[in-house]
Design a protein around this nucleic acid. Structure first.
Lengths: 142, 142
DNA sequence: CTTAGTGCCGTAGTCAAGTACAGGGTCAAG
DNA sequence: CTTGACCCTGTACTTGACTACGGCACTAAG
């Protein structure tokens, strides 16, 4: 079978990846995606590799990496960057665990607040806001 | 005892709250903080209430509320907004729970990645990046 | 009384992550 | 050969949350 089927223009690449065309170009400008050298005419062709890379960027973003970090990660792929990549991932893991803990405290606080609110509905000043205003330090400050 | 001790200028308020002066002014412009009417001269004085409010804003931000949502919450405080406030808080609670679930999936993914990385350290191409490149859908797509 | 240090006000700049658009070029169909 | 759908480059705009700055007023210390 011919494997030309994966050849795409920027438009179909973007569509396939579920992002805006301009986002693809933006990533190229940021050096996250390479611009395939354009043949005679001037219309670039992209393949499955580019699509994966785009998918990687989006996955990594959902993992909480900034584009700068994603760029770093991708640079580490060209060669022996595994050590560093693991270090970065470990840092991110710690980070994520901290954020989960925060979120859980937030959850508890919100839950408490909602229930308090339900309990004394007739109140004039909202107990939720009151409790927040009364300087409860729920989440670690920054 | 005199309770004039809580009177502050914008500068000390900002310092006490651990934010930039300009941030305070910004919140005032956004209507999150009131500008105390300035006496004769023209230098406003802030009190513990303002400090709490500032603390509330920061807490709420850490709770994942945007400034717009915080403004909403604060507006509900002037009167009988308790019902609405609870509704907002409930929505946020659902939201936060979803985000916690996401983060936990992220955590698992990162953890897995880190361990894979540790396992086959000698590899040329980093397994972490490889796994991300191979289109693993870890987190719900947006 | 003078002057350093703040405060006030208004406008403008920054940063991340896009998104939009103008003014061209190219390509495939009819 | 024309038309419409895309593509290319480059520049500019957007949003959220600040942060900075210029020019003037005021207040506190010496």
């Amino acid at each position: 079978m011919t494997r030309q089927a994966t050849q795409m223009t920027i438009g179909s690449l973007a569509k396939a990846a579920g992002v805006n065309i301009e986002t693809v170009r933006y990533y190229q400008r940021r050096g996250l995606l390479s611009e395939p050298d354009k043949p005679l005419g001037g219309i670039r062709r992209y393949d499955r590799g580019d699509l994966s890379r785009l998918g990687f960027i989006k996955s990594a973003q959902r993992l909480g990496f900034s584009l700068e970090e994603v760029a770093l990660l991708l640079k580490l792929d060209d060669g022996t960057g595994c050590e560093e990549a693991r270090t970065i991932a470990e840092k991110k893991l710690t980070d994520v665990r901290g954020r989960i803990a925060d979120m859980q405290r937030i959850e508890a606080a919100l839950d408490h607040i909602v229930h308090t609110c339900q309990a004394r509905q007739g109140n004039v000043s909202c107990p939720m806001i009151a409790s927040l205003l009364m300087g409860e330090r729920i989440v670690r400050p920054a």
